[in-house]
Amino acid sequence: MQYVWFIWSLIILALWAVIYLFKKDIRIEMLKMSWITMPFGLTEPLFVPEYWFPPSLFNLAENTGFDIESLIFSFAIGGIGTVLYNLIFKRRFVEMPHSERSHRRHSLHVYILFVPVLIFAALSLFTGLNHIYCGVIALFFGGLATLYCRPDLKGKIWVGGMLFTVLYFVYFGSILPFYPQYVELYWNLENLTHILVLGIPIEELLFAFTFGMYWSGIYEHLYWRKVMKPITID
């Protein structure tokens, strides 16, 4: 099982590559958000070994807490999470008019962007919660904060969370038929709820939902964009 994490991180990267190759109109958005997301893979020492302890290339996770796979995985889900809703519902990114940017809700724009970081840091420092729960809570409230600032993204935020959960469920579940003991061996279940959904720790699905919820609207929030239906000419 030494290379399972590496192989499955390449699989999600392959999905990213397929979308990137065949959807030219969203390449810029995918790349931007993937590069922004990738450094979050460097937070892996916060989760190893208290959440999980995966075998990794060169035994990096075991020896240092860091691993190459987390960077690949973070890069891939950053781009996919940003555009998944647009792909399913055939939406495009358009620039938000300056008249809308001046709304009083956007006066907190910069502060709201940092809500997940602040909440994660506070929970990590002042509670004994496992970091996975800190991350889930931080992402959830980050999504709600985005919703306050950008109510026009309401549908994308909630549906984006559900879409990414479904994708992640299929992605994670594809490991288990080949390696049915993978979760039992490498997740620190004693620190978690022990709730499994068809073999998948519920914490993974909570992460998927809250990540999809927050990340589906982060590009629009960060770069002052909206999502619109493409204009068709009959």
Rank of each mutant, 00 (worst) to 15 (best):
S9Y: 00
L10P: 00
L13D: 03
L21N: 02
L21R: 03
F22P: 02
K24A: 13
K24Q: 09
D25S: 11
I26H: 00
I28L: 09
I28W: 01
L31K: 02
I36Y: 03
I36T: 01
M38H: 00
P39W: 00
T43M: 13
Y51F: 14
P54V: 01
L57G: 05
L57Q: 03
F58K: 02
L60V: 04
N63G: 12
S70K: 01
L71C: 09
I72W: 00
F75E: 03
G78V: 06
G81D: 02
V83L: 09
Y85N: 02
N86Y: 01
L87K: 02
R91S: 08
R92H: 07
R92T: 09
M96P: 06
H98V: 14
H98L: 13
H109C: 08
Y111F: 13
Y111Q: 13
L113R: 05
F114G: 11
V115T: 15
V115D: 11
P116D: 14
L118Y: 11
I119V: 15
F120Q: 04
A121D: 07
A122G: 12
V136W: 02
G142W: 08
G143W: 08
L144W: 04
T146E: 14
C149I: 11
P151R: 08
G155Q: 11
W158L: 14
V159N: 12
V159D: 12
G160L: 10
G161W: 09
Y168K: 03
V170H: 05
F172E: 05
S174I: 05
I175R: 02
P177Y: 03
Y179K: 12
Y182D: 12
Y186C: 05
E190N: 11
T193M: 12
G199P: 11
P201Q: 03
I202K: 08
L205E: 06
F209H: 07
F211Y: 06
G212D: 05
G212W: 06
S216E: 12
Y223K: 11
K226T: 13
V227H: 10
V227F: 07
T232L: 15
D234M: 09
